[in-house]
């Protein structure tokens, strides 16, 4: 589904990604862990199309297409979704109405008819229930006045509405209490299928008890330095990242 090869990226002449490789296939869940400042959010932003970064080397192919050449909105319409670490508040813009526009722009891009008002409202009801997002919150201004947990649930609600092929969750678990975490994980697990894939970026192994990954990768200093099965997350939790650093020095 997505193949990242030797990706190098700078921000303001500072190298952040330094030769990152990753391949994710349909039906898989990958977890990316790593210390603060390793470049996890940078990777997510580059995949979603944020323009502040300079790609100096490498390639990203998404379903066979050159992702880095695509506009942000076309990436979304082709099925890439980023659940933001820090979702923005947009006063005055109704969450529901902007999602209807988003769905219809996606449909138009794919040569489909717009969604009917009735089908749309049914979809809103179904998906807001999935993430236990109050229908009132769903129709308020985007994230305005939402608590941290509500913002994260709203991200998963939007993901559920847009049914992406590849979802990237950037620290969606940070700051969530255990109930909210279960709700979010349940949302992700319900949406999982053989045709889509998920990249879960997290700091904490805890999330991976609920969203069980097929692979765990360690992102450190701009590269994936170690990959393994889900048990790797437990090992990281136990030993911390210093252990990885030492391994790197030895190598």
């Amino acid at each position: 589904m997505i193949t990242i090869k030797n990706l190098h990226a700078n921000i303001e002449d500072k190298a952040i990604l330094k030769g990152l490789n990753l391949e994710v296939k349909a039906g898989e869940v990958h977890a990316i862990m790593g210390p603060n400042g390793a470049g996890k959010s940078t990777l997510a932003s580059i995949l979603a199309g944020k323009e502040d970064y300079e790609i100096t080397e490498g390639s990203v192919s998404f379903d066979g297409e050159d992702l880095l050449e695509m506009e942000t909105e076309d990436r979304a319409r082709e099925g890439l979704f980023l659940a933001f670490q820090y979702p923005v508040e947009i006063p005055g813009v109704s969450n529901i109405n902007f999602l209807r526009t988003a769905i219809n722009e996606k449909r138009e891009h794919l040569g489909e008819d717009p969604i009917s008002a009735k089908d749309f409202m049914a979809l809103v009801r179904e998906k807001s229930k999935l993430v236990e997002l109050d229908a009132k919150l769903a129709s308020r201004s985007v994230n305005e006045g939402f608590s941290g947990g509500e913002k994260k649930r709203n991200e998963i609600f939007q993901m559920a509405m847009l049914e992406p092929k590849l979802a990237i969750l950037d620290e969606t678990d940070s700051g969530l209490d255990i109930d909210a975490l279960r709700i979010v994980a349940n949302g992700v697990n319900t949406l999982k299928s053989d045709n889509n894939a998920t990249i879960v970026i997290t700091h904490y192994q805890r999330l991976l008890d609920y969203i069980v990954p097929d692979f765990v990768h360690v992102l450190y200093d701009g590269r994936i330095v170690k990959s393994g099965p889900k048990e790797l997350a437990l090992e990281l939790e136990e030993k911390g990242y210093d252990w990885i650093k030492e391994e790197l020095v030895e190598a």
């Binding site: 506009e71 942000t72 923005v88 947009i90 813009v93 988003a102 722009e105 996606k106």
Partner: peptide, 18 residues
């Protein structure tokens, strides 16, 4: 206009002008 808001909306599939 808030660039982060524009990016957020585009990341959901809206064109820049939308």
């Amino acid at each position: 206009l808030d660039d982060d808001a524009i990016y957020y909306l585009r990341a959901r599939g809206l064109s820049k002008s939308a």
